[in-house]
């Protein structure tokens, strides 16, 4: 975090000088007045005002730079848009372009990793508990994956019923397991639970007794 201390004839002068030096506007910094300054008496004992200006951490800017650097290094033909809501503490990033397949990776493993890394970058200087929630998507992958998982859940539930056997799905990420649990929570003939430890935790579709 960049911190700057500056003096001026008045507090306003000192703030103005700091902003000029940092090349930012007043909403991008935190200002602390160290010394109000004093005009003195008849020109004697005058003291300059002093302020300390701290550049605020701009989560959106940092994440944008982070992803741009990665894209440039890997020479990927992709671009992205960031929708950041400071009020709701959410950041949604959407990728598009010829190489989105790379960004998604195998079953979304790269997408999930980038999402986690961006989450860390976005919340790097957060000391309060209002952490920014980051979601990365590319060509509606998340929505499509959810549909696929819902279909899988239904199919496997039918299989469990027809074979009269519990069906164990392959290991999945927490939010993917959640989709399976939710898809079958109102199913009259099966119930679901998870076994094992992450990252090998998997959902079991069991017959209701």
């Amino acid at each position: 975090m960049r911190v700057l201390e500056k003096s001026g004839k008045t507090v306003d002068d000192a703030i103005k000088a700091s902003l000029e030096e940092l090349g930012v506007t007043v909403d991008q910094v935190d200002i602390e007045i160290i010394d109000e300054g004093s005009k003195g008496l008849f020109g004697f004992g005058s003291r300059d005002a002093k302020v300390r200006v701290t550049l605020k951490y701009d989560a959106e800017k940092e994440v944008k730079k982070f992803l741009k650097d990665i894209i440039r290094t890997l020479k990927l033909n992709v671009d992205f848009l960031i929708y950041y809501s400071e009020l709701e503490s959410t950041m949604k990033i959407e990728f598009f372009g010829a190489n989105v397949g790379f960004i998604i990776g195998h079953r979304g493993d790269v997408l999930d990793s980038l999402q986690y890394l961006c989450y860390l970058v976005a919340n790097k200087e957060r000391t309060d508990d209002k952490l920014i929630h980051v979601v990365i998507d590319a060509e509606n992958y998340r929505e499509k994956r959810e549909m696929t998982l819902r279909n899988l859940a239904e199919r496997m539930a039918k299989k469990a019923v027809s074979l009269h056997k519990n069906v164990v799905l392959e290991p999945m990420a927490p939010y993917e397991r959640k989709i399976i649990h939710e898809a079958l929570q109102n199913n009259p003939s099966v119930e679901t639970y998870s076994i094992g430890e992450d990252p090998h935790r998997k959902v079991v579709i069991a017959l209701k007794k």
């Binding site: 790379f102 195998h106 493993d109 790269v110 999930d112 990793s113 980038l114 986690y116 890394l117 860390l120």
Partner: peptide, 12 residues
């Protein structure tokens, strides 16, 4: 978890 995310991106 962070090391794993880094490795996944680098591996890809």
């Amino acid at each position: 978890r962070i090391a794993k995310a880094i490795r996944t991106v680098v591996k890809a």
